[in-house]
Simulated assay, not measured.
Amino acid sequence: MRLVPLLLAVLLLTAGTAALPAAAAPAPSCATGDPALLTGQLRSGGLVRRYEVHLPARRDPARPLPVLLAFHGRGEPPARLRGYTGFDAADAVVLYPEGRPTAGPQPTLAWEGTRDHPVDGVDVAFVRDLLAEVGRRVCTDPRRTVATGSSQGGGFTHTLACAAPGLLAAIAPVAGAFYRPEAGGVRECRSGPLRVVEIHGDADPVIAYTGTERSRPIPEWLAEWTARDGCGRPVDRPLPPDVTERRWAPCSRGGEVLHYLVRGGNHGWPGAPAPAVVGPGIRTTTISATAVILTFTGIPRSPA
Rank of each mutant, 00 (worst) to 15 (best):
D91H: 08
T32Y: 00
A15Q: 08
Q106A: 15
T157P: 09
G16A: 11
L7Y: 05
S252Y: 00
L131D: 02
A289H: 05
V119Y: 05
G298Q: 04
G104W: 07
R283P: 03
L109C: 03
D116Y: 12
W225E: 13
S215D: 08
C231L: 07
E52V: 04
H267Q: 13
L37N: 02
L13T: 10
P28E: 04
D129W: 04
L38W: 01
V94W: 02
C30I: 05
P181G: 02
R143T: 15
L55F: 00
L7R: 13
W248S: 14
P105H: 07
H72V: 12
R50S: 10
I207T: 14
E245I: 08
A161Y: 05
L294H: 00
D242P: 11
D88W: 07
A177S: 13
Q41M: 11
V48K: 01
A70P: 04
L11P: 00
T297I: 13
S151R: 06
A289W: 05
D202S: 11
F87C: 01
F71D: 02
A24K: 06
T286M: 12
L294I: 05
L12N: 09
P97Q: 00
P165Q: 04
P28G: 12
L6D: 11
L11R: 04
P181L: 00
G265N: 12
P66H: 04
E98D: 06
R43Y: 02
Y51C: 00
G46Q: 05
G279D: 08
A19Y: 02
P101G: 07
A89I: 03
R115G: 14
L8M: 07
V4H: 08
R247W: 04
G104F: 14
S302H: 01
R195Q: 14
R216L: 15
R80E: 14
P107N: 06
L68D: 04
G75E: 10
